[in-house]
Design a protein around this nucleic acid. Sequence first.
DNA 1: CTTTCGTAGATTGTTAACAATCTTCTCGAG
DNA 2: CTCGAGAAGATTGTTAACAATCTACGAAAG
Lengths: 244, 244
Amino acid sequence: MSLEPLPGISTAEMVAQRIRDAILEGTLRPGDRLIEADIAAELGISRGPVREGIRLLAAEGLVVLRRNRGAVVASPTFEDILEVYVVRKGLGSLALQHAISLDVATAPEFDDALVLLDRLRDPEVQADPLLMMDADLAFQSALFDLSGLERITSVLDQTARDIPVFVRVLGITYDSVDHAALIERHDHLVEAIRTHHRDAALRAWDDHIRSTVGEFSRGYPDAQIEGIFELPLMHHILDHSSHL
Amino acid sequence: MSLEPLPGISTAEMVAQRIRDAILEGTLRPGDRLIEADIAAELGISRGPVREGIRLLAAEGLVVLRRNRGAVVASPTFEDILEVYVVRKGLGSLALQHAISLDVATAPEFDDALVLLDRLRDPEVQADPLLMMDADLAFQSALFDLSGLERITSVLDQTARDIPVFVRVLGITYDSVDHAALIERHDHLVEAIRTHHRDAALRAWDDHIRSTVGEFSRGYPDAQIEGIFELPLMHHILDHSSHL
DNA sequence: CTTTCGTAGATTGTTAACAATCTTCTCGAG
DNA sequence: CTCGAGAAGATTGTTAACAATCTACGAAAG
């Protein structure tokens, strides 16, 4: 039995999370500079860990940094979030396939995922779009973990951390989402995994991605997604249903 | 030991490259600890940039780091490199599709890619398996860049940096590769992009991935890939030809 | 003999000062 | 009035010292 040190999270990661939160609550906006000394002073620590935290965000693509010129909050476009979703679609379906082939429905981790799915049914969670999104992504992440594909799940987790920020920054409205339909799709996915129905699982996953991106597209100013629908990126997400 | 202000490359990135090189030449082996102070002393710099460079490698999955316990060189398995190739297959075919739809054959960057392809024809390059692999990956990276999909190419580039190290660490022999066949496949790919033949391009890309992984499998001890062929990971790479 | 505990050494995590680089603003030439 | 050289300030990059944590080893207890 191991008792991990309670923090469990490094100072740099805390810094990164604080900056993510600041973007989510609007304190930081795209294009804003991240000045190491200022952030360090604000958090009451020194520049070292702050610098490290900023580099973590840069690896995720949430901030852009140029040599000797510091970091600025990234200005993602609608196409950026499509890139994120096309990665999630492709790598996600592979992870799910793999998990199913491992007969993972009997593992205790599978039940952990179910608990996370139940969180989506909590009215308190449903009341807050941000909580809802976090819970949704946490559930998905738990499913991917079942595959044991560490490198692929690592990429997926990286995209998951970015999604709420991107949605916020892009001004996408996610309020109109149909919670019942979302949960039903996830139930289908879980059931397909439990019963080893590979094709049903991949269909459920495709449905989820398509619905989510479709939701985003509705809540986004038409002018700024002009032309996007002509690109294979969008085409792939919405129309193409081949399974990686 | 001079690590000095070369244009574009940060000290941390130089440190990361030095460590990659050390693994390639066998100085560092899987499981070896990376001690910040030692590396700093060896390179004649301080611990700060060394620490930063190690974090870069950790983000790539080349070293594993545990809180307050430092970093060790990762011990990749054959399955790890399959994960890398499945990512490259999936995201690569998407990037190529996208590039084709952008009518990118007229862009000057396309010619840059052709120059990199010609490097593969240089007998001097062909004589050194490591040079050959680097040139091969550089050419592929140039093709992906044509898509303009920054997040996806960034993931692809990350995998490209790891591949030579993984190959070295796993003891995969890449010597028997048929250079003429490799170049011919790439020529097909280039021609398909130039003439906007989407399906031909995706077929050429699938061929390349399949040949490469097939080559790896031949040069690897059978005992250690036992069972791998049953997993959807391997199945996907070798048999499944759907295009993401 | 095994286990537990405690200390010393090794190593990472953090800090603050210093150096190098970039940005901004002034001021003079054209 | 515009443009550019150059100094002053702001900010990042680097360094070395300090603090916190982990590891290894050995002695004492069971």
